[in-house]
Design a binder for these strands. Structure first.
Lengths: 126, 126
DNA sequence: CCGATATTTCGCCATATAGCGAATTATATC
DNA sequence: GATATAATTCGCTATATGGCGAAATATCGG
């Protein structure tokens, strides 16, 4: 029960749900999720740590970067069920589709450039 | 998205999850749920209204009593998915099994007696 | 070793939420 | 109509949560 409630609480925030949906079929660096959600790095880090504690995501560290991915086949059944339910319910949601589009743009940028640009009110044109 | 978050928020409270699980395969009167959760009537009423707003439960009014049941086949897919996920994840949870046992006892009581007994620190033996 | 940089942790604030009891509403019974 | 009763709404309090910026941590490049 404790574990299960950890999952439901984790799913109870819109930004965390958006982050999970963004991780469908790919892994993302924290800075890419920051860019997507347009929130402070500390806020996004906290969100991701909540998702990790609920076992909804796994992480991989590569140098200074931390990559997140959805929990896979090794995960607990309730976690896999949650992810399946989430994806099925929101796949066609207009906000999620919009995020998907936004992500396509974000993914075009080199990670180091993206990270360096954060916190400096990036101008879209340069 | 708005509707979906309504569901996830509703699932984010342990007492609401317990109430939903209690409704598997039967309908219950509010006073029976009050007895199960051992919370104030106003608190339980609020919980159930949140579940109703999320469309996770339907209600039927019969005189002074209000009966709750899980949303059925007519419900939105994300709601049905949520209920299915919930039941599959918690069916064997020890807290839920304990609630199931407790409910068996509660169901033995006549509704009017149960309601009348609430708020008066019922002695198990009378 | 010394910055620079990505992430996390900490401290704080504003808001949301769960809980209760009292007051209100709706319905049944007298 | 008056009274009793099941449920809801209201007002309040205590706690939890999401947000940020500053400070701390970890890692890379010189």
């Amino acid at each position: 029960m404790r574990d299960f409630m950890g999952v439901t609480r984790a799913l109870g925030d819109e930004n965390r749900v958006r982050a999970l949906m963004a991780l469908r079929g790919r892994e993302l660096c924290l800075c890419q999720i920051i860019e997507l959600l347009e929130l402070a790095p500390s806020t996004v880090s906290k969100h991701m740590s909540i998702l990790k504690q609920a076992r909804l995501v796994d992480t991989r560290k590569s140098g200074r970067w931390v990559f997140y991915r959805l929990a896979g086949n090794g995960a607990a059944p309730e976690v896999q069920g949650a992810i399946a339910w989430l994806c099925k319910s929101l796949e066609r949601d207009s906000f999620i589709v919009q995020d998907d589009d936004h992500l396509q743009e974000i993914l075009k940028w080199d990670l180091s450039i993206l990270c360096a640009a954060q916190g400096r009110k990036v101008n879209e044109t340069c």
